[in-house]
Design a protein around this nucleic acid. Structure first.
Lengths: 149, 149
DNA sequence: TCTACGATCTCTAGCGACTAGAGGGTCAAG
DNA sequence: CTTGACCCTCTAGTCGCTAGAGATCGTAGA
């Protein structure tokens, strides 16, 4: 019924150090320990960790996951807050898609204009160095750029 | 003709500490110094920094920017390498858009299925906790997720 | 019961691309 | 020559992990 952190890792696909990190970050509760001080887990932990992993895969941030987990603990509450978190995240993803779309268009245009000659005449290089050049519509590119990864 | 780091910052829109960071990171050359040890810049530096900023806004990574800058220094070379870097980056952006698109669909479905009742019955919560659940088509979601920010 | 070996423990440090602050020195206008 | 805005270096922090060192634990075979 009880199992080790390695077994939990195998069951959920989350790496061992990451599980410990989640505990330190407050996403997972502090695990009870064996006599020798090793963490012991049960079925509920595996479920919680799976929940966390899926939420991460869907791009939810730890803060949002913490909220979702807190809400999960109160099954009788209205799920409108859950909904709100998910919708907020959806909007965020949509914004990112739009921003990347503008990027793609700009890159495409840049590449299309290249005459495949010398570097000195390259439109790609020219566009990048252009002082006038700006892709953002609302000045969000400067914020968005580091986040594009 | 020569100006300070603050002036360079004003001209390019790149923050002062970031300029120093770029120098340390090898994107900007070590700036010549005044008698008192302060960095002095010229027009070429402003252009290079503008180039870097635009490339960053377009999501090019420092490594790619370094390559592009190295190529810019040899105007007589064929710009096919420049092209290759840009195309590679475009593909990357397209992959990211596709991945985010799947995410958006999944989130949308999740939210649509929610009956707006109790947390205990919430499909959003259920979906996240589901062991079977998996959004990736080629197992790339696990890699992509942390990079989505 | 002993031993061997893999698994686990904590702690520290590193990644990338900056950002923020401390504590001090420099520049240029008045 | 003073003032105050600017600049310097250095260290440390951010986030979400990941990687190692060195020590301890758990368990299966002899």
């Amino acid at each position: 019924m009880e199992f080790s952190i390695g077994e939990l890792s195998r069951r959920t696909g989350v790496k061992v150090p990451t599980i410990r990190y989640y505990e330190a970050a407050g996403l997972m509760p502090p695990a009870p320990r064996s006599e020798g001080g090793q963490r012991r887990y049960g079925r509920a932990d595996a479920e919680r960790l799976t929940f966390i992993r899926h939420a991460r895969e869907l791009g939810f941030e730890p803060d949002a996951i913490r909220e979702l987990l807190a809400l999960t603990a109160e099954p009788d509450r209205s799920c409108s807050e859950v909904d709100a978190i998910a919708v907020r995240h959806l909007r965020d993803v949509e914004r990112r898609i739009a921003s990347l779309g503008r990027l793609r268009d700009e890159l495409g245009r840049m590449i299309a204009e290249c005459s495949h000659g010398r570097v000195g005449d390259c439109r790609v290089i020219e566009t990048l160095g252009d002082h006038q050049h700006c892709i953002s519509e609302h000045g969000d590119a400067r914020e968005a750029a580091p986040a594009l990864r």
